[in-house]
Design a binder for these strands. Structure first.
Lengths: 271, 271
DNA sequence: GTGACCGTTCGTCAAATACAAACACATATG
DNA sequence: CATATGTGTTTGTATTTGACGAACGGTCAC
């Protein structure tokens, strides 16, 4: 009662945050019952019950027997969001063509909140363990150890990259992962110079990927694409050069089409 | 102060509902600025600002310049939800095979909150206007005028079907759409008897679809599948019979595989 | 330079939520 | 067969929390 309320700005609504705590808990637990959730979140049963009832009324949660789960409403909204993304609309068919032409995995990615999100991926004929990679559950992931991520980082404003590193750090994944600021900025410079990025077993041992950015005509990076495959195959000199050309070429095609579509809405260059 | 608060149960949290009002408004408006949203929702600027800031902190909203949009977080959560669905996991490869074998569009659908949701769809070789249909934006839609929807309705408990009709009615879409209770219940009986459902230009003129349900071993309907194509082709007697067999057969294969997977968790038959 | 507009911040009061205890119901347990 | 312990749900009440409107600090247009 005596101490200051320190109502920092922007004021965040605790009730809304708690609602999303419930959403995240339902995801973590793969659905849960009232008491289970109440323990997990350290809230009283009645409170949790009210949150679940509200989320259910909003159709973002379903109840089966006494178990509450997230509903497919998230998928519907999610697909709407993806469809709004011009990079997805333009890039999808091009990525499919790239996968067919190269026979490798092809990816289309973008950045949000400093993390990378796969908008789309296709497996070509040669791609191994197709079910594992294509059906694997998607998460937003660090940008600094994937070919798509590094291509994006290389074309973000420096202060934004700094902010991202401050937020998430540079955690290692394999022994090849770049984990220091200096190394990363050097690498990003290299990527800018040569026009494509390389992920050399930095995320998964045995896997190499080649990426290229897609920017709009104001220089803002919209996302990136990549192909990936086993190092054994990817490192064969002629094949390697050929893949780089295909990737860079596809990125350019997408870029041109995106910029033709975007010509109405005018973004300022930066800020 | 004098009148009753009518705090009906379950008590729904207004702050959470308003947060989802904001989400829906951002979807409707394809992103919006603070003042625009405030007008649209009849709330003060500062209130809207607080909701947006909270949603942004939770990473479900992004801010570009001064425009707020829904983020791809919805897609990530949505893909998680879909992946949790056993019908999707088991059905996806079978649906792909069905599309390849028949050359037509193949669909995998389920029910939620009394509406139908497409979990997956693939276009076969013969499928026309592929980009239109496959890339079209998904919405939860009425069950009574699609082949997948009717196959589901036919295997839900009668009182649930009644509840759905009470909730949403039976709106017409073409002149062939079933719009009366009696007709619908007769149709559902027919579907149960012959084992498959037919959508005969009831949703889109010129389009026919053949559907079949997928139930678990307790008789609960998990969803349904269908193939669709132009009536001209679909109504050729031999081809028609052949398609029915393929659809019913695929549904059975999925059913068997789902029931093998589910054999651990035991649901009671009804309630 | 002035006016209108934007997004953001802040103090204040009414309102909406958290809590705990009680409820109805089921399923074990002595 | 009654008792104890577990659900999910409901309700009354205290108080935290969010809504409001006004004010601030920008930017852009005229």
């Amino acid at each position: 009662m005596a101490d200051e309320h320190t109502t920092g700005s922007p004021r965040t609504l605790k009730t809304v945050s708690r609602a999303f705590d419930v959403v995240r808990a339902l995801e973590e637990l793969d659905g849960a019952r009232v008491t289970e959730l109440a323990n997990h979140l350290d809230l009283s049963k009645s409170v949790v019950y009210n949150y679940l009832s509200t989320l259910r009324a909003e159709k973002f949660v379903v109840k089966e027997e006494d178990t509450y789960r997230l509903s497919l409403q998230f998928l519907l909204v999610g697909e709407y969001v993806r469809y709004q993304n011009i990079l997805y609309r333009i890039g999808k068919p091009e990525i499919e063509e790239l996968a067919e032409k190269t026979g490798e995995y092809a990816h289309l990615a973008t950045e949000q909140h400093g993390l990378g999100i796969n908008l789309y991926k296709v497996s070509g004929e040669k791609a191994v363990g197709s079910d594992y990679q294509v059906n694997k559950l998607q998460r937003a992931d660090y940008l600094h150890f994937s070919a798509t991520g590094k291509a994006i980082l290389a074309h973000l404003p420096k202060e934004r990259v700094e902010w991202i590193i401050d937020q998430y750090g540079l955690p290692g994944k394999t022994e090849a992962t770049i984990t220091t600021r200096e190394e990363l900025f050097e690498e990003l410079e290299t990527i800018r110079d040569r026009g494509y990025s390389l992920n050399d077993e930095e995320e998964i041992k045995g896997l190499q990927a080649i990426g290229a950015p897609v920017t709009n005509r104001h220089g803002r990076v919209l996302g990136s694409i990549s192909v990936s495959g086993p190092v054994r195959r990817m490192k064969q000199p002629d094949y390697h050069e050929q893949l780089i050309e295909s990737v860079v070429n596809t990125a350019n095609v997408i870029e041109v089409n995106v910029n033709m579509e975007e010509s109405d809405d005018d973004f300022p260059t930066f800020s």
